[in-house]
Design a protein around this nucleic acid. Structure first.
Lengths: 214, 214
DNA sequence: AAATATAATTAACACTGTTAAGTTTCCAAA
DNA sequence: TTTGGAAACTTAACAGTGTTAATTATATTT
């Protein structure tokens, strides 16, 4: 039955077209400018056709966020070469900040935008999403650091929460233009990133047991 | 000229009515359910009347966020009694988390929602907003801690960014239902708050120079 | 070729923020 | 007290939004 196969492929192609169009609008014009009608215009179908391939707008954004997670996972490939877990942790934070600051729109759907209810239940079905892979690897890394005595022993979940909070907090405040108030003068993006690096550097320095305290 | 005074007062009263109605919708039905028409319904005026008192919807939310900042400032009154700056820092973080978790809608407009451009320029005019007061007091507190040798010396801005990031990160992830993935099972709000407390506790413990490191 | 299943579209609904134009209300000067 | 004008408010409308039911066009199967 080659015909049903081809049909299925066509279906997937159109799905991809819709996602690509959404992404294009998303990155170029921002979240609020992604409308069903604009998507339909781009792929040269009628607006209602979109609903033949996606339940609603939320599902499209959910799919986009999944793409974002994969991108992030890919970015973290550069960690594999780093043996020292504490160094890896630092690089991981650096990656996170870099990803968020250079892909603010992706970051938005992944971590800032309200997650629709039925996506949450979908997550629970999957049980092993790209997002949970990231957080699990962070927890593993922390455990590794503790086992090797590189950082103080503490409940992994608590420390993971703090570290994720730290980087997410800085990135999301930056993306939403709230970090202006930290210094009196305006700060440009590059310098902001530099400051974030200093922050995680300072942070990891303080929890690093090998650094001598006076 | 008592008449022009009374007129002015009336104007302020209606402004307050609009803000109160917005707030009510905001808290009870969430951000997306605050519409000009619903506000108008509540105050029993026509929708266009709202525009005689506020430039646009953004201005209403900006005003609401200002109210939020004042509420937060008020909450921080309990800090004055604490002499030890490190203890104050801990309590400040606890306050922040408490405020965010019990007033998620306020927190939203204050720190998460996209800030409209012309509000930012308005901020620069004011130059001394409730928001910047909070961040300045955090910086002052940190300087105090460093001067007294309670925590390691480091650039205040960098440390302030890290700490604000830490608490904001945890709260905003919680509000947007992203913290579910940190533990495999569902976590209820109260326990989440407890975990956040443990996080800042652990964090301040590690930067506290008086705590002995093994 | 006719019947059926699939795919795409048109038209419409119930909303949204916002504006121009028209009414009503109120206060001060003639 | 009447009249003029300003201020306050409303009606109607515009240009959008997500989404659905009903309809038409296109393939596929019998």
């Amino acid at each position: 039955m080659g015909i049903v196969e081809r049909k299925e492929k066509q279906k997937q192609d159109i799905k991809k077209m819709i996602l690509d169009a959404s992404m294009k609008l998303f990155v170029e014009e921002g979240f609020d400018n992604v409308t069903i009608r604009k998507i339909a215009d781009l792929i040269e179908y009628s607006p209602t056709t979109v609903y033949l391939y996606f339940k609603d707008k939320d599902e499209i954004f959910f799919q986009l966020s999944q793409v974002g997670f994969e991108k992030m996972l890919e970015l973290n490939q550069n960690l594999t070469t780093i043996a020292n877990p504490l160094m890896r942790l630092y690089k991981m934070g650096e990656n996170y900040i870099h990803f968020g600051m250079t892909n603010p729109e992706y970051y938005d759907v992944m971590f800032i935008q309200r997650a629709p209810m039925d996506c949450i239940s979908k997550m629970e079905e999957l049980e092993w999403t790209a997002g949970s892979i990231a957080i699990e690897s962070l927890k593993g890394l922390l455990k590794d650091c503790m086992d090797k005595g590189l950082i103080q022993k503490a409940p992994v979940e608590i420390v993971a929460m703090a570290i994720w909070g730290l980087v997410h907090g800085m990135v999301s405040l930056a993306i939403r233009d709230r970090l202006e108030s930290i210094s009196k003068k305006l700060i440009e993006k590059d310098q902001l990133i530099k400051m974030m690096h200093q922050s995680i550097n300072w942070f990891l320095g303080t929890i690093d047991t090998s650094v001598k305290k006076k």
